[in-house]
Amino acid sequence: MNNQAFDLLMWARGPAFDIALMIFAGGIVLRIVEIFVLGRKKDLAPAKGNPVAQGLKTIFSRSVPREGLVKFAPITYIGGYIFHIGFFIAFFFFAPHIALFTDAFGVSWPSTGRVIVESATALALLALIALIYSRFTDPVRKALTTFDDYLVLVLSGLPLLTGYIAVNKLFGDPTMMMAFHILSVEALMIAFPFTKLMHAFSFAISRYYNGAIQGRKGAES
């Protein structure tokens, strides 16, 4: 007799993960390499500031919004923060996820309790809904939104939703929900190199360039 849920889970943990991983890792490397190999010309103007130092600094400092701007796009700013932080906590501080990193890279770090993980998940989901809402209603967001944006929003929400349902056994067979959870992550991984999800890696490169360009001139960034 076959246990469909179990088989699906094993497929998700086995071949599906391998396929997703290959597309994910290969695709990201491809796109990052595509960026770097293009290169840029050496800047011949004598530097006033230190481009490298400011580039590196900007990778972090750009995480803080400029004063006075939050009020003009509160959903995007606040929702964006909550989503990213919530997703980050749920992804990196839930013990089963850490176990994956331990298995893959041999690194480990302390996990956090269920209350924090689940609150983070719930908040991230709510933030995501708000972000989707703003894409429908806010004229700026609406004008920019493409299919890619909705796809990415939905794909980032599904792992949170299915994970929450699986852990809390809200409905459905828990094994099946866990399989769905892993499959939803794999969908996210597969979409990753083809969509704006790439920003999760390229943001650091972009911020570095931005900081370095400004820093070379001794200007703020």
Binding site: R13, D18, L21, V29, V33, A99, D103, A104
Partner: peptide, 26 residues
């Protein structure tokens, strides 16, 4: 939560393949 298969090989192969295609494309 850990993948059941021998995913490391797949991952390494993908990274190498991605880099090669990326270089070619670039």
């Amino acid at each position: 939560s850990v993948p059941a298969g021998d995913y490391r090989k797949a991952g390494v192969a993908a990274v190498a393949g991605g880099a090669a295609i990326g270089v070619a494309s670039a």
